[in-house]
Amino acid sequence: MSNTRKRVAEDAAPSKKKHKKRKANFQENDALDAELGINTLFGRMDSQLLADHLAQKLTRFGSDLSPVEISDLTISANSIQDTTSWQEPRTLDKLPDFLEKFSEDPESLVKAPKKHGSPHTLIVAGAGLRAADIVRAVRKFQGKDNLVTKLFAKHMKIEEQVKLLKGKKTGIGVGTPARLIELIENGALSLDNLQRLVVDASHIDQKKRGVMDMKDTMMPLARFLSRKEFTQRYVDEAKPVALLFY
């Protein structure tokens, strides 16, 4: 190849990369429904695509981590339940229906395990305000002996949450990764009866950012989802935990 042709080829390569990047950004931006406040891509991603998406975000935001550390935070495709059969918009008002659809026994959602502070469902959000909205959305499952519990920093001190979990039965807990980790590690939040982890993935804020679009929310989420208590059970047939992205 002549020097001139070689230079032309080299100049064209970055251009192709930029074109691909622009195309990817366009496709992602096109999926953002500002009116509904959701990223519609999550409704079209199967388990493998979700795993790839998580891996891309880890690579982007975990640039200060070693390959081994990144590997430890990676979630495999077979750990994620495919929810592409859900055809409704992944908006807050549809969340209860989504939970019922992907529960083997929908009626069990209104019941709490006998053990205090041991929910069957944990819903993970990126921020306290959003978690508070989710609590209100799933309150239809709450009953006299079945609390929908606020497990995030806003509104409640951790001491209050510890007391609540130790003294009450709860079927559904809604929280942020950091506070959930703290409650697990201090023993107040039991995972013995956990059946499903639901990530509030589709929601976008006014700046069109979701929980995986910011380092401050993506990395705590990755550390939470990749805890051994969960990863061992994502693929455990005897006592599984379903990992769902809403």
Rank of each mutant, 00 (worst) to 15 (best):
A125D: 12
A125F: 10
A125E: 09
G126C: 03
G126D: 04
A127F: 05
A127L: 10
A127W: 03
A127P: 01
A127I: 08
G128V: 06
G128D: 02
G128L: 05
G128M: 04
G128S: 02
G128N: 02
L129Y: 10
L129R: 08
R130D: 02
R130G: 02
R130W: 03
R130N: 01
R130V: 01
A131D: 02
A132Q: 07
A132S: 12
A132L: 09
A132E: 07
D133P: 00
D133W: 01
D133L: 14
D133M: 08
I134A: 00
I134V: 03
I134M: 00
I134R: 00
I134Q: 04
I134K: 01
I134D: 02
V135M: 04
V135Y: 00
V135E: 06
V135H: 01
V135I: 14
R136T: 10
R136V: 13
R136G: 10
R136A: 15
R136E: 14
A137P: 04
A137N: 03
A137T: 07
A137R: 02
V138M: 04
V138F: 02
V138T: 01
V138P: 00
V138W: 04
R139Q: 11
R139C: 09
R139P: 03
R139K: 11
R139Y: 10
K140E: 13
K140I: 15
K140Q: 15
K140L: 14
F141L: 00
F141K: 00
F141H: 00
F141I: 00
Q142W: 15
Q142C: 14
G143T: 12
G143Q: 14
G143E: 11
G143H: 15
G143P: 04
K144L: 13
D145H: 14
D145A: 09
D145C: 09
N146L: 13
N146F: 12
N146R: 07
N146A: 10
N146D: 05
N146G: 06
N146I: 09
L147A: 10
L147T: 03
L147N: 00
L147I: 05
L147Q: 05
V148E: 05
V148R: 02
V148A: 05
V148H: 10
V148M: 06
V148W: 01
V148F: 00
V148P: 08
T149K: 06
T149S: 12
T149N: 03
T149P: 03
T149R: 04
T149D: 05
T149F: 01
T149A: 07
K150E: 13
L151F: 01
L151C: 09
L151D: 01
L151Y: 03
L151P: 04
L151R: 04
F152N: 06
F152G: 02
F152H: 12
F152W: 12
A153E: 12
A153M: 06
K154H: 15
K154W: 06
K154Y: 09
H155M: 13
H155I: 14
H155F: 14
M156R: 11
M156H: 07
M156P: 02
K157V: 06
K157N: 06
I158F: 05
I158H: 03
I158E: 14
I158Y: 08
E159L: 09
E159W: 12
E159P: 05
E160G: 10
Q161C: 15
Q161D: 11
Q161M: 13
